[in-house]
Design a protein around this nucleic acid. Structure first.
Length: 215
DNA sequence: CCATTAATAGGCG
DNA sequence: CGCCTATTAATGG
């Protein structure tokens, strides 16, 4: 395991990144460091009694929920520096989502009460939090619009373009299994498989397993 | 290895 | 496009 610095962990989280060192040093001692989750293990589950914010120090995770029939709906992916669990910062109830490690993952967390106290004393952090919420809202909105107005093929391509921008490369690496990506995009795995083929035939992309090159 | 899960293919409504 | 079934590929123990 790599050497872990509390401040280093926190400073790479987008939510905290613009804060001054002196504030980071205040956050570090009250956050929990550093929990390891092996690939496939569940980081959060409904009713686990854990509250507060989690942030990804290393690795990635998927957020999903289960419907009444036990089917999984993938809501999103957490990558290094992302955070989740904000909802229960403001209420006592746990939300109904699962978070599962996609690779061996290290997670830092801060509990609700500590975070709330910190928020009161740190206006900059409150502002950052507000901005982060705004970004999440925009992301959810984008996803919703795509779902309603774009074909599966267009949605897939738009997703890949987003990923290319995020990963800063025309060759993207899927973190999700294709069946999970299908769930995220709101299509069946069969449809995803066919659309990938179709995009390849259009010479818009080329696929090698989970590596996809965008032309 | 074997067993399970994931990915693909083809047919049909 | 989703659903179903069959086959193949990949994964994990």
């Amino acid at each position: 395991m790599k050497k872990h610095s509390a401040v280093a962990c926190i400073s790479q989280v987008g939510l905290f990144s613009k804060l001054s060192d002196s504030i980071l040093k205040k956050i570090a001692p009250i956050s929990t460091h550093q929990e390891h989750f092996p690939k496939g293990s569940i980081i959060r589950r409904p009713g686990d009694g854990k509250d507060g914010l989690i942030f990804m120090d290393e690795g990635s995770a998927k957020i999903y929920s289960l419907n009444a029939e036990g089917k999984e709906t993938v809501l999103g992916v957490l990558n290094q520096g992302d955070f989740d669990g904000q909802l229960n910062l403001f209420q006592d109830n746990n939300n109904e989502n699962f978070v599962q490690a996609l690779q061996d993952t290290y997670v830092c967390s801060i509990n609700r009460k500590d975070f709330q106290n910190l928020l009161k004393k740190t206006p900059d952090l409150a502002l950052n939090l507000l901005n982060s919420f705004g970004q999440k809202l925009v992301a959810i909105e984008t996803k919703s619009i795509r779902r309603n107005s774009m074909s599966a093929k267009e949605r897939l391509l738009a997703y890949l373009e987003d990923l290319a921008k995020k990963q800063e490369s025309r060759t993207v690496q899927l973190k999700l299994k294709k069946k999970d990506l299908a769930s995220y995009l709101g299509v069946t795995p069969e449809t995803l498989s066919r659309q990938l083929k179709s995009l390849e035939k259009d010479e818009l992309i080329s696929v090698e397993g989970k590596r996809i090159k965008i032309q």
